[in-house]
Write a protein that binds this DNA or RNA. Sequence first.
DNA 1: TAGAGCTTTCAGAGATTTGTAAATTCTCTG
DNA 2: CAGAGAATTTACAAATCTCTGAAAGCTCTA
Lengths: 160, 160
Amino acid sequence: MDTDQRLREAAEKLALTLAQGGMQKTTARVMTALLYTRQDAMTAADLCAELSISSGAVSTAVKQLIPIGLIERVPAPGSRRDHYRFRQGAWASLMSQQNAMLATMGAAAQEGLDAAGQDSVTGRRLHEMKDFYAYMTKQLIPLIDSWRQRYAAQHADTPR
Amino acid sequence: MDTDQRLREAAEKLALTLAQGGMQKTTARVMTALLYTRQDAMTAADLCAELSISSGAVSTAVKQLIPIGLIERVPAPGSRRDHYRFRQGAWASLMSQQNAMLATMGAAAQEGLDAAGQDSVTGRRLHEMKDFYAYMTKQLIPLIDSWRQRYAAQHADTPR
DNA sequence: TAGAGCTTTCAGAGATTTGTAAATTCTCTG
DNA sequence: CAGAGAATTTACAAATCTCTGAAAGCTCTA
């Protein structure tokens, strides 16, 4: 089987997994298309053709992917079309955003604690929750940074 | 405002957040009801009443929450009804399951690499992805374990 | 082992989501 | 600054999802 076809299938497969994990299906497909494409970047029209979806759907997907830092718009000299490409370091920023969710969970636990007090079944449940998320919140960012450093060191000689 | 009411509102608020993060709405509501309740455990009927939903909906939600380790069925001596309660250490096991997702991401990257080869734009993109998820996969479990240990040490004298 | 008390399953109604096509807006260029 | 080419928004239609109510299925106990 040819390379393009294998990549296309890998892309759709991952998109399906991500969709089951809560990401919108079309958004996931656009993301994986940009991840597995052999081009550096793709235009909206490319994405329409590759995925057989309308330009409106592409627009919506892109609007969701850009704010979370997974893809970026790149200026394309000589073309009037927008080009999109998968961002370097996208995974690390995606994981960093998980941190916001961790913090939210911690805050939710605190809120419950304020209402219930420490000394109750509820209090003990929520205390564990709060402690866990506080710990994770504190550890995750340094962990990601340590990966960034390590990866940058390994690839000091190979910029994009 | 009374305690129950504050807890109820905190529960619904968190449920909403979780729902936006991809969890099924009713599943999230059942989970947070069990998290913020002042009882140790609740019956299906309790949940129906508290959340104004049918027993079928409770059954479905419970069926999703148990496998992921967030809640558990507890035998209730003297009652024929099933009782459900939020599991101790639920958050840690939830996070551990994230690890499966991380591993999946790493595998997806590898699959693409096999098709595209290292020396291509695609290869470089996928290599970063693979490296990131491999690193995270390796670090996350120890991190969770270190929390477990720390928390257990702090609460050696206060079992449930 | 018959039956009470719960839980689970199932079919269908209702609500929500999501994609398309077309209209609109935006942005370059000649 | 007019117009062409592209992106975005909107209204609507289609598909999907999810809950309810009712029936079926378990599992204890008397």
